[in-house]
Each structure stands twice: as structure tokens, then as C-alpha cells.
Computed example of a mutant assay.
Amino acid sequence: MTTEPSSYHRRVAEQKRAAIMEAATELFLETGYDGTSLARIAESAGVSRATLFKQFSTKAALFDAIVTDYWRPTEGGGHPEPAPGDLRAGLTAIGNGYVDLLTRPGMVSLYRIVIAEAPRFPELGRAQFDLGKMPYFSSVRRYLEAERDAGTARFDDADTAATQFLGMIADYVLWPRMLLVDWSPSRASMERAVAEAVATMEARYGA
């Protein structure tokens, strides 16, 4: 007799996990990380405490899961690493994918939670950095290194190049949203921002 959970039970577990993470994100934003208890999250998610503790043994583990989920690309899985050989096409694909990531529902809320609570809970900032930003950043750095190896780009420091590219996009797409609640640039304007960032990278690093 198999002990593996059935597809139905796996689906139910996934649904409960998603409900827990959604409820936790809303409560973290509303009452802060410190002011939100696992018991309240369970109540808001409509699950038992036993179910929540089975999924997440600590509040920190739950927050880590939220960060990892938000930084995971929504389509295709993995992090974007186009095949090298065409710097403009590759950077454009990465740039537009980064826009999709930064504008997905909840990303701004996640940043606000981290910024508000990091002075008292520095582990939240570390989770955002280590589990979210750095894996994505590393994928962009690897792509740029592959372009350099292919002879389509020239630079000495891949970290600097990746930081510059992602920073040019985030400065228009993400950071104004942190302060301006009505900041909602059109898709066309964000694509223009990506195109300008790509043109800048080509001018500086294109071989």
C-alpha cells in the first residue's frame, strides 16, 4: 500500500499553502511582521493551526517562503538566462522579464514590509537579499559573462554591469511606487525604459 499522498491531497495542500502565504502577506503589511502571529495568520487563511505549523514551523520560515515565491518568475520556471550571441535581444528579454517581476501584485508590498521591519528584524532584509534578489541578480550576471565569453560584450566586472542594468530599470519601474501611491506607468513607457537601458548597455559594453 502506497504512502505517497494522492494528487487530490497534494492539490489541497498547495491550495492551503497559497492561502496561508496570501493571508500572511496581507497581515504583515497591515500590522507589521512583529505584530502578526502565526495563530492570526491561520485564522485569516481559514486553516487550523496544526495545518499552518505543518507547512511552516516558524514565522521566519513563512516569510522566507513568501520572498522566494515573489522572486520566482511567473512563466517558464528558473531565472532568465537567454542564449548568448545577441546582446540586444538578450538584454531586452531580461529587462522585460524584470519589469514583469517588479510589477507583479504584492512585490511593492513585500519591499515595504522589509523596509519597515528591517531595523528590528534584520533577518527580513537578509531573506529578501539572499533568497530573492541575489539568485535573480546572479542569473543576469551569468548571462552577461556568457555574452563576454561569446565575444559580444566587453567588461571587466560582471557584477557592476548587472547592477547598472537592473538599476536603470528598477529606478523607473519600482522605486517611485514605494513613495507615490498613484505611480502607474504604462506598459509602453516601461518598455521604453528597458530599451533605453539596453541601448546604454550596448554603448558601454557592446563588442
Rank of each mutant, 00 (worst) to 15 (best):
residue 87 L to Q: 05
residue 118 A to W: 11
residue 110 L to N: 00
residue 76 G to M: 02
residue 128 Q to N: 11
residue 128 Q to H: 14
residue 100 D to G: 07
residue 128 Q to S: 10
residue 106 G to H: 06
residue 105 P to E: 03
residue 130 D to L: 15
residue 95 G to Q: 10
residue 111 Y to G: 02
residue 97 G to V: 12
residue 95 G to C: 09
residue 79 H to Y: 09
residue 119 P to T: 07
residue 118 A to R: 12
residue 78 G to M: 14
residue 81 E to R: 15
residue 120 R to K: 12
residue 129 F to K: 13
residue 120 R to W: 12
residue 119 P to D: 07
residue 79 H to D: 09
residue 97 G to P: 12
residue 99 V to W: 02
residue 124 L to G: 05
residue 124 L to K: 05
residue 82 P to K: 10
residue 91 L to G: 03
residue 113 I to Y: 03
residue 103 T to G: 01
residue 78 G to E: 12
residue 98 Y to L: 11
residue 116 A to M: 03
residue 94 I to V: 08
residue 108 V to Y: 00
residue 129 F to P: 12
residue 79 H to F: 10
residue 123 E to P: 13
residue 83 A to V: 04
residue 95 G to L: 12
residue 122 P to V: 06
residue 108 V to S: 01
residue 87 L to F: 08
residue 122 P to N: 07
residue 108 V to H: 01
residue 88 R to Q: 09
residue 94 I to D: 04
residue 108 V to P: 01
residue 100 D to C: 09
residue 101 L to K: 00
residue 117 E to P: 13
residue 87 L to P: 04
residue 85 G to W: 09
residue 119 P to W: 07
residue 111 Y to D: 03
residue 105 P to Q: 05
residue 110 L to V: 01
residue 109 S to C: 15
residue 112 R to N: 02
residue 116 A to I: 01
residue 92 T to Q: 06
residue 98 Y to A: 09
residue 86 D to V: 10
residue 111 Y to N: 03
residue 87 L to N: 04
residue 109 S to M: 15
residue 118 A to S: 15
residue 117 E to V: 13
residue 127 A to I: 09
residue 94 I to T: 04
residue 95 G to K: 11
residue 101 L to S: 00
residue 89 A to R: 10
residue 125 G to N: 06
residue 127 A to D: 09
residue 116 A to T: 03
residue 114 V to A: 06
residue 95 G to W: 11
residue 123 E to L: 14
residue 116 A to W: 02
residue 81 E to S: 15
residue 113 I to G: 05
residue 123 E to F: 15
residue 125 G to A: 07
residue 123 E to G: 15
residue 93 A to M: 06
residue 117 E to T: 13
residue 83 A to W: 03
